[in-house]
């Protein structure tokens, strides 16, 4: 009897090599590969999530800028419209003022002419009355000479005007 049985020794070596090949093919390789693939996938999806967040932030900044621009533009438009309206209103008021002044002026002028006319009429009728009265006093001489009448009226007008 010997301590080491050479057949058992060789059998064990063959058995172990076969077991190594079997386990490598069916256990270690597939499991390691599976886990590596999974961690790769997780890493990829994390990267993608990061990228998407970054993109979203960029988009947000962009939209905010656009909104701000639109806001500014709206403000500018309103300002411009206000300014235009003010100008227009001022212009209209000015025109109206001018017109009103013109109307007043014209009315004044008209009133003056009326006055002068009225005075003239008054003078004429007065002079007629005076001449009638004078002719009545003097006798029945009718003075039809316009030249004399006008002279008298002029004199009377001059004294009247004083």
């Amino acid at each position: 009897m010997s301590l080491i049985n050479p057949y058992t020794f060789i059998f064990t070596i063959i058995n172990l090599v076969v077991l190594y090949l079997i386990l490598r093919k069916f256990l270690f390789k597939p499991v390691t590969q599976f886990m590596e693939e999974r961690s790769e996938r997780i890493r990829n999806s994390l990267d993608e999530a990061d990228r998407k967040v970054h993109e979203a932030n960029e988009l947000k900044a962009q939209y905010e800028e656009i909104l701000k621009k639109a806001d500014d533009e709206g403000k500018a438009i309103i300002d411009r419209a206000e300014k235009y309206a003010k100008e227009k209103a001022e212009k209209i008021i000015e025109e109206a003022n001018i017109e009103a002044k013109a109307i007043i002026e014209r009315a004044k002028e008209e009133a003056e002419t009326e006055k002068i006319k009225a005075m003239h009429d008054l003078r004429v009728s007065l002079s007629h009355l005076i001449i009638e009265a004078a002719s009545k006093a003097i006798g029945n001489i009718s003075i039809d000479d316009d030249k004399i009448i006008n002279e008298v009226v002029k004199e009377a007008g001059a004294s009247w005007n004083k």
Binding site: Y7, T8, T12, L27, F34, R38, R41
Partner: peptide
């Protein structure tokens, strides 16, 4: 060629490990 109990038990262990690794790696989920 004499086959000792050592070799027979080694074969049993090999069978157990092979079958176990086939069963255990089947239908894996993420």
């Amino acid at each position: 060629i004499p086959v000792t109990t050592t070799v027979v038990v080694t074969w049993i262990i090999m069978a157990i490990l092979t079958i176990a690794s086939l069963i255990v790696t089947r239908g894996w989920n993420q």
